Simulated assay, not measured.
Amino acid sequence: MPDFLTTPYLLLGAAAAAIPIVLHLILRNRAETVYFGAMRFLAATPKKLLRRQRLKQILLLLLRVLALLLLGLVFARPLFVGEKMPAILGEEARALAIILDTSASMAAQQHLTAAVKSAREVLQKAKASDQVSVIASAGKTEVLVEKTDPVQAEAALANIKRQQSFGNLRDAVQFADNLLAQSSLRRRQIYLISDLQAAGFSPGNLNLKSGAECIPIAVQPAWQNIALTSGERIMRNGQVSFVCRVRSFAKIAQEVPVQLVLDPQSKRVAASKRITLAAEEEQTVHFAAGEVTSKGASTAAAYFEILAPIDDLPDDNRYYLAPEATQTARV
């Protein structure tokens, strides 16, 4: 008898479902052909109507059988008990392995900070009965905590530190798989939190012997970048002015100082302005001839510079202008 029935012997009552079939076979009418003189005046019954009536009778018979089967199942009182109850209700304890990539590539754009935040979100959704292991993966695999509760696992995240080495995520997943294979819990999950650089994950199919579900979480924080996209020196009517374009690739508005520097060696600030850039906005900044307070502006080497308060890529914060060639006069 199935072990999910409270009173399995009462399932024998479902055998009563055979009663309608037996009665149907015993009591069904057998047609008898009777000839009489006026038969030729009667209209023949369409075959389509006969098939429809037969189909209705079969469906009615099936419904009667199904009703008796369900009645027998109800008397048997089906219920998932023991180890099966938590699995059905989604409350079964899990064995979790959280792998955090701590290789050198995680330094870009605060990836490691975002990875720790993702790990905290996973632990906050975990149940108190879950067993959690936290693993740091770089050149070598390091176990921070093993088979502990979510609260202690979250506290261990404070010990995460970035390593100046390449990543080896494949070995870390295999290590977590061996760790979960030793768990007595049947539901097993591996969370792989990384920027998923190709160099850190060697090719080849992973063979998870523990039967764990591997869940990758890609860390991709939004760029907060302000860049100088172009610059130009304009000569007109014997006067010189400067124009540059500043673009925001960020998702937030910022107030950005823009400077014009003449003579890169002395870094003399010839003019400066402050602009407000909305998210993903581009503006043109113009330094008129009267705003540039330095001699040699028409020929000297110069560069534009922005001083953004939040900028993940400072390498594009300058735009250089080559010095103009002076014309020699013939005598």
Rank of each mutant, 00 (worst) to 15 (best):
residue 1 M to P: 15
residue 4 F to I: 06
residue 14 A to W: 03
residue 20 P to F: 00
residue 20 P to R: 03
residue 22 V to P: 02
residue 25 L to A: 07
residue 26 I to Q: 08
residue 28 R to T: 08
residue 30 R to Y: 01
residue 31 A to G: 11
residue 33 T to P: 01
residue 42 L to C: 02
residue 42 L to Q: 05
residue 49 L to N: 13
residue 52 R to W: 07
residue 56 K to D: 00
residue 58 I to F: 12
residue 60 L to I: 10
residue 63 L to D: 03
residue 65 V to I: 15
residue 76 A to R: 08
residue 78 P to Y: 10
residue 80 F to D: 01
residue 84 K to R: 12
residue 87 A to P: 00
residue 91 E to G: 02
residue 99 I to D: 08
residue 103 S to A: 07
residue 109 Q to I: 15
residue 109 Q to A: 15
residue 112 L to W: 05
residue 121 E to A: 07
residue 126 A to C: 11
residue 128 A to C: 03
residue 132 V to G: 06
residue 134 V to T: 08
residue 135 I to H: 08
residue 135 I to Q: 04
residue 142 E to H: 07
residue 143 V to T: 13
residue 144 L to M: 08
residue 154 E to Q: 12
residue 155 A to V: 12
residue 159 N to T: 09
residue 162 R to K: 14
residue 163 Q to I: 13
residue 163 Q to F: 05
residue 169 L to M: 15
residue 169 L to Q: 10
residue 172 A to E: 04
residue 174 Q to Y: 12
residue 178 N to Y: 07
residue 179 L to C: 10
residue 184 S to V: 11
residue 190 I to S: 11
residue 191 Y to S: 06
residue 191 Y to G: 04
residue 191 Y to V: 10
residue 196 L to A: 07
residue 204 G to V: 08
residue 205 N to P: 05
residue 211 G to I: 06
residue 219 V to Q: 10
residue 222 A to V: 09
residue 222 A to W: 04
residue 222 A to T: 12
residue 224 Q to R: 10
residue 225 N to M: 06
residue 225 N to Q: 13
residue 231 G to P: 01
residue 247 R to Q: 15
residue 259 Q to P: 02
residue 265 Q to F: 09
residue 267 K to S: 12
residue 267 K to W: 06
residue 268 R to W: 05
residue 269 V to A: 04
residue 275 I to G: 03
residue 275 I to W: 04
residue 275 I to M: 05
residue 276 T to M: 11
residue 286 H to G: 00
residue 292 V to D: 02
residue 296 G to L: 07
residue 299 T to L: 06
residue 300 A to V: 01
residue 302 A to H: 02
residue 303 Y to D: 00
residue 305 E to G: 00
residue 306 I to R: 05
residue 307 L to N: 14
residue 315 D to A: 13
residue 317 N to R: 06
residue 321 L to M: 11
residue 328 T to P: 09
residue 329 A to G: 01
residue 331 V to K: 10
residue 331 V to W: 10
